[in-house]
């Protein structure tokens, strides 16, 4: 029983880390800059595809694997992955090299996808931008499902486990790594918040014309933000793949990786990092509980998974109706700290 709870919490932690990173990416784009990115799934999928494509090839190159298997990587991927796993169990440094290289490539893929989807979109007004990004989000799913060499088509592929060396602590290590990613994004956002850049972003969000008239290149800055958001999403996608040691295009849905993050961010409050954190935690917990206790609802004449959709939709509507700014609202941020402000005011005023 205790083991089950441990597994539950570790998996919760892992998903929490991934989603928090993803949601903070949305917070950067929507909350700071007012970009309604309905294509989060695009860069996330890009990162996940990199995670599905690269580690197994790196693994074959770095450790001893029967080279004849490489003739059909997709067909033989389970055998190759388990052979690489065996070698990685005793080679944490090799495993971490694979991890780092994969993250690097995933970040680059995310940036590239952000650039590709953002470039045509940033000049469009509010909801047209949203629809443009929404449409873009579908592109990789169509390619992944139909072009087998990427990640094996709809069935997906299995990949080597870069956490294999941690043995029994494998899931714990992977979960913590996910949270480290989220923490990194959190710190990045915090530093943006207090910087002049943060104020420029909010200015663009609140009145892009006024910001442009003050000499800010609005389209360029928006594009930069989408690219930065894409990098974060790409990293999250790769980390997710490395955590689950598998990737299938069908599991990278618009619902899970665009709409769900939106619900969490709107619920928690797109104007606050803490709000996003709370929103993420609450929804991950609810989702895990529904999945875990699915069997208890088996008397229903339908799949209880749909209750989750129902719940998300209802919560979103209620929040938008009664508390559109979310659970935690945006706080005014000051260029100077309180003490400096008082000092400056004291000098001027008295």
């Amino acid at each position: 029983m205790g083991g089950q709870w441990l597994l539950f919490s570790v998996d919760l932690l892992a998903l929490f880390g991934i989603y928090l990173a993803l949601n903070l990416s949305l917070r950067l784009q929507l909350g700071y800059t007012g970009i309604a990115n309905f294509g989060l799934v695009l860069a996330f999928t890009g990162g996940a595809y990199v995670g599905g494509w690269l580690p197994i090839r790196l693994g074959m190159w770095l450790v001893e694997v029967d080279p004849s298997l490489a003739e059909d990587m997709i067909w033989n991927n389970v055998i190759i992955a388990s052979q690489v796993d065996l070698s990685l169990q005793g080679a944490p440094f090799t495993a971490m090299t694979i991890l780092l290289l994969t993250l690097l490539a995933a970040g680059a893929a995310g940036a590239l996808l952000g650039l590709l989807s953002g470039y045509p979109a940033v000049r469009l007004g509010g909801d047209y931008l949203a629809i443009s990004l929404l449409a873009f989000g579908e592109v990789l799913a169509i390619i992944g499902n139909n072009y087998d060499p990427v990640v094996g088509g709809p069935l997906g592929v299995r990949i080597p486990d870069v956490w294999a060396w941690a043995g029994d602590w494998r899931f714990m290590a992977a979960s913590l790594a996910n949270c480290v990613l989220a923490l990194g994004v959190w710190m990045y956002l915090n530093s943006v918040e207090r910087s002049p850049l943060g104020r420029v972003l909010r200015a663009i969000r609140d009145n892009s014309d006024a910001a442009a008239s003050l000499g800010k290149n609005v389209a360029r800055i928006r594009l930069n933000v989408i690219v930065a958001g894409g990098i974060i999403c790409g990293l999250a996608g790769a980390m997710y793949t490395l955590y689950t040691t598998g990737v299938a295009p069908s599991a990278l849905s618009r619902f899970d990786w665009t709409f769900l993050p939106w619900v969490m961010v709107i619920f928690g409050g797109s104007g606050s990092n803490v709000g996003v954190l709370i929103g993420t935690f609450v929804f991950i917990l609810v989702q895990k509980l529904i999945i875990t206790y699915k069997f208890a609802l088996s008397f229903l004449p339908f799949d209880p998974v749909w209750l989750q959709f129902l719940l998300m939709g209802l919560v979103l509507i209620l929040v938008l109706n009664f508390r559109p700014s979310g659970l935690v609202t945006e706080k005014a941020s000051y260029a100077l700290g309180r003490r400096e402000m008082a000092k400056a005011a004291g000098k001027e005023g008295l």
């Binding site: 309905f38 909801d127 949203a130 129902l310 998300m312 939709g313 979103l316």
Partner: peptide, 24 residues
């Protein structure tokens, strides 16, 4: 209009659930 787009997404989630429950 952006916020209303989000509202329609919320409604879309609810109707997806309703349709699937009905189909099940």
């Amino acid at each position: 209009s952006m916020l209303l787009l989000v509202v329609t997404i919320a409604i879309s989630l609810i109707t997806i659930a309703a349709i699937n429950i009905y189909a099940d």
